[in-house]
């Protein structure tokens, strides 16, 4: 069984100059204090900073001989940490900032939908190639495809404008797409973005 030296004895030893006693105290409560701070601030880096500031205060107070709460080391350290957490939030309230943390990144919610320069160039190339391919189609199919895709007309409007039935317009559109795929296959053209 491991022998655990009492906190109050470690504190006394530390005040008397035993630096090793501080190491034992820090390691003994590292997880509890860090987790307590993290549960409030929810940021690993901030939690680490507050942990550090907490123990700097502890060290200063002990070295100055101002510590009087013998036997209640952990609640005392927790109170220091708690006050520093409040200070942290007060400071942030005066100067609010929003930045990414381990759990949440603002850029996962807000993003730029615009294509980057490379993708834009690729898209332009594909559009240009496609225009040339459409020129290869028979006129009646080309007419329907242009009206549907580029002019965004409904098949009803296309039938009215071309003087053919809706079914014929649908059929021409279907053949236009089939023929486009055939041309793409025949020439081994790769249209991807």
């Amino acid at each position: 069984m491991e022998l655990q030296i009492d906190d109050s004895i470690l504190v006394k030893n530390y005040i008397a100059g035993d630096e090793k006693a501080l190491e034992v105290l820090i390691n003994r409560y590292n997880q509890r204090i860090s987790s307590f701070i993290y549960s409030k601030v929810l940021d690993r880096d901030v939690a680490e900073d507050i942990f550090q500031d907490t123990f700097i205060k502890v060290i200063k107070t002990l070295k100055r001989g101002s510590y009087s709460e013998e036997g209640k080391f952990l609640p005392w350290v927790m109170r220091i940490a708690h006050n520093l957490i409040i200070d942290h939030f007060r400071k942030n309230k005066r100067m609010p900032k929003f930045e990414g943390s381990d759990d949440f990144n603002i850029f996962s919610v807000i993003k730029d939908d615009k294509l980057n320069a490379e993708k834009r160039i690729i898209k332009d190339q594909i559009d240009r190639d496609l225009t040339l391919l459409i020129e290869e189609l028979p006129d009646d199919q080309k007419e329907v495809l242009v009206m549907r895709i580029y002019k965004d007309m409904s098949f009803k409007e296309i039938s009215e404008n071309t003087g053919v039935s809706i079914n014929t317009a649908l059929g021409r559109m279907r053949y236009a797409l089939i023929n486009l795929r055939k041309i793409v296959d025949r020439h081994n053209i790769v249209l991807t973005n």
Binding site: E23, I26, N30, Q31, S34, S35, R44, A47, E48, Q52
Partner: peptide, 9 residues
């Protein structure tokens, strides 16, 4: 559960 890094200690 988190722990302060060894560097901080």
């Amino acid at each position: 559960t988190v722990k302060a890094s060894q560097g901080t200690v």
